[in-house]
Design a binder for these strands. Structure first.
Length: 333
DNA sequence: TACCCGTGGAT
DNA sequence: TATCCAAGGGT
């Protein structure tokens, strides 16, 4: 039995391990700038690396810098985010570009505190930007670090609770040195992604095995403490199909709310149906916190339509929710 | 604190 | 098929 390593040793072991076994070829690791790091970190929130890569490439080609993003149309921005989910990330990213343009003349601030004031940037993302873009000291706690630390230090309790979260950030502060900052931050993420994984962790080849407290206690599979989950409700939804002259009527979804900023079939939230309606079709969709059981019914154009009619080719340049785009592609034309 | 906010990969 | 969960932040 042995205790945990001191920060210096811990740091060196991870940096050395990552030099050989870490990831070095991800698109956002090539010539990182504050902007490219910022974009990639936002896209990577709750989203797998493989999913992000093509989105990142398209984004950087269309919005190569803060100016391009700040001046882009919202529709253009949302079209680039279509399918990634959590669409407030995209709207916040553009807000951030406008904020940085106005407040900092398109130069990212240098301090963690200032970076954390950028719309959509929290404590983790601020630390990541400082680490990856500036190669300066920026503690990070994300899902990877959470898993690694909960196991390495044998931290009990649900990580999202304030007490455990505070412990995790305390360890992050204590174990983040001011040397090899970029490599260390990346090593934490790589360890979490390839060794200290949620399922079937590769303890046998882990460079921290001998001092990992969960490993010594044979509790690797039990940590971090899983959050008790509640059953998600199923909601019924009704969407309206209005077609005229080979064009389909869509409305832009308001913020806040689901699919904010995306174009969508108008939703009918009234509970009572006055008359039998012609049904175009149905679809089901699963969100992170509820299920949607939807039907789409036909209607005729009325007076006060707030949205617009679009031809099929025009739809290609809009941001639409994934299940709505799928439904339309099955039923339009 | 608890909930809101999407989608798709992995098992 | 069901469940987990993947570089979180805002309210």
């Amino acid at each position: 039995m042995t205790g945990v390593l001191q920060p210096q040793s811990f740091h060196q072991i991870l940096v050395d391990w990552a030099d050989t076994h870490g990831r070095h070829d991800l698109p956002w690791q090539q010539r990182p700038t504050p902007y490219s790091v910022h974009v990639s970190e936002i896209m990577l929130q709750q989203t797998q690396v493989a999913t992000v890569i093509p989105y990142f490439e398209r984004w950087m080609a269309s919005f190569p810098d803060l100016q391009a993003l700040a001046h882009a149309t919202e529709d253009h921005v949302m079209h680039h985010w279509q399918g990634l989910g959590y669409y407030s990330r995209a709207r916040n990213l553009q807000k951030a570009a406008q904020y940085l343009l106005e407040q900092f003349s398109a130069h990212y601030p240098r301090t963690l505190k200032q970076i954390e004031m950028i719309p959509g940037v929290g404590r983790y993302t601020a630390g990541a930007i400082v680490s990856f873009a500036y190669n300066e000291r920026g503690p990070i706690v994300d899902g990877n670090v959470r898993r690694l630390f909960c196991r390495y230090f044998a931290i009990d309790g649900v990580p999202s609770t304030s007490a455990v979260s505070r412990k995790l950030w305390d360890y992050a502060e204590q174990y983040t040195l001011d040397t090899h900052c970029r490599a260390y931050a990346q090593s934490l993420l790589d360890m979490g992604a390839t060794i200290c994984t949620a399922k079937n962790p590769a303890c046998t080849i882990c460079p921290l095995q001998t001092s990992c407290q969960a490993y010594q206690q044979q509790r690797v599979e039990q940590l971090p403490t899983p959050k008790p989950k509640k059953q998600q409700p199923t909601k019924a939804g009704r969407f309206i199909w209005i077609e005229q002259d080979q064009q389909l009527y869509l409305e832009k979804r308001p913020a806040p709310g689901i699919w904010a900023g995306l174009w969508c079939l108008p939703q009918d939230d009234s509970t009572q149906v006055l008359e039998p309606q012609i049904q175009i079709g149905t679809f089901k969709h699963v969100f992170s916190h509820y299920k949607l059981d939807a039907e789409v019914v036909q209607a005729s154009p009325s007076e006060d339509l707030k949205g617009q009619f679009f031809s099929r080719s025009q739809l290609d340049n809009l941001g639409l929710p994934t299940p709505i785009r799928a439904f339309i592609s099955r039923h339009f034309n």
